[in-house]
Amino acid sequence: MQAWLLRSPPFLLLLLIAVHLTLVASVRLSPWLGGGFGMFATPDERHLAVYAVDAEGGKTEIALPDALHEDALRAHGLPSPARLRALADDLARATGRTPDSIRLEVWRSAYDPRTLRVRGEPLVAIGPGEDPR
């Protein structure tokens, strides 16, 4: 066995942590998930809002079908554009809409340090409409 391979586990852990931090910064991976150590370090309550957007740009919130609940949970955890687009496609199929008429927004709750009043912070959005950030 090569000596470098025998000593590789700490380097693999550092790599995992680096990947985690990169995903948190780039595609909003929840700090609680992945190979990093953001658990028990920050509140990370996330909310997914699903809208049907009409031709005039008006948006109406629609319920997520139960069958897509698991996919939605994963989209909470890692709301990458690709994952959200896949969810929008599945939602379009399930509701008989076109994918480009569906808008998904992922928000997180931020808390006032003193009063703990909740404030919504948009994380990412896809679909027609303005970026809420």
């Binding site: 309550e45 909310h47 809002a49 919130e61 927004e105 928000w107 709750s109 808390y111 009063t115 703990l116 009043r117 909740v118 404030r119 919504g120 912070e121 948009p122």
Partner: peptide, 23 residues
């Protein structure tokens, strides 16, 4: 309930207005 509710900025039927948590 208040801390986990959808923030008011997001709107929708389950959103909650912000309120203080007296501790």
């Amino acid at each position: 309930d208040a801390l986990l509710a959808r923030p008011a900025e997001l709107g929708g039927p389950t959103s909650r207005p912000p309120s203080d948590f007296v501790r």
